[in-house]
Amino acid sequence: MQIIVCIKQVPDTTNIKINPETNTLIREGVECIVNPFDMYAIEEAIRLKERCGGKITALTMGPPQAESALREALSLGVDEAVLISNRAFAGSDTWATSFTLASAIRKIGHYDIILCGKQAIDGDTAQVGPGVAAHLNIPQITFVKKIEEVTDRSIRAERMMEEGFQILESPLPVLLTVVKEINEPRLPSLRGKMKARKADIPVWGPEDIDVGGDQIGLNGSPTYVAKIFAPERKGSGKIFRGDAEEAVDQLIHELRSGKLI
């Protein structure tokens, strides 16, 4: 079983804020982490390998420091890693990113299952996974919460929907995006970290994956970010303090006069 995991290094968004005066991100003290949803993809890849044997390759596109995300994947049990990094890829939107990843996957050659997290927590688009599947013209199963069965030719998985789930069957190769219900990611081990530290991680540029021009980076991106700004907050309302009984009475009064209850 040849498995490819696409991962992304993201800022830990729980700590990110915007400076309301300049409308710029305050990135001081914000750590870069492996996108949490991709951790489930990595874990599922390792479990698939434990079940079926084979090899796992982790793939990321990003600045040179994204290499540390790949090392983390290696420390967990991924076999090989490739970093796609070049200034020419800067400014890629989801179209250009999925095109670039798909091109790198073609260069890797043989693959049975491609795993992605359902979305990245910085952009929250959930578009790159299906985009890669479309570029490679392979089937996809999005929002997978369980892999029920896998053989060397097919897979059966549960896709999470708003009010339940669908069970889908697909031939391989297939691309899956996974949700956090699928597993509980393991922690790295010391041995894994030591192995990862020494691993050789090739860096591929546009010429390595035979792409360029108006397909990658900002030129290859149909969308662009016109502006960013801080979200609006509602003003403060009536806050009741002190005696709980009194506060509850006041609240009920307000809700009743607003015909809310």
Partner: peptide, 14 residues
């Protein structure tokens, strides 16, 4: 050392 840092980081995660 790099290994000691690795131990510290991993223990911090645990």
């Amino acid at each position: 050392t790099e290994e000691q840092e690795m131990i510290r980081d991993l223990c911090r995660i645990v």
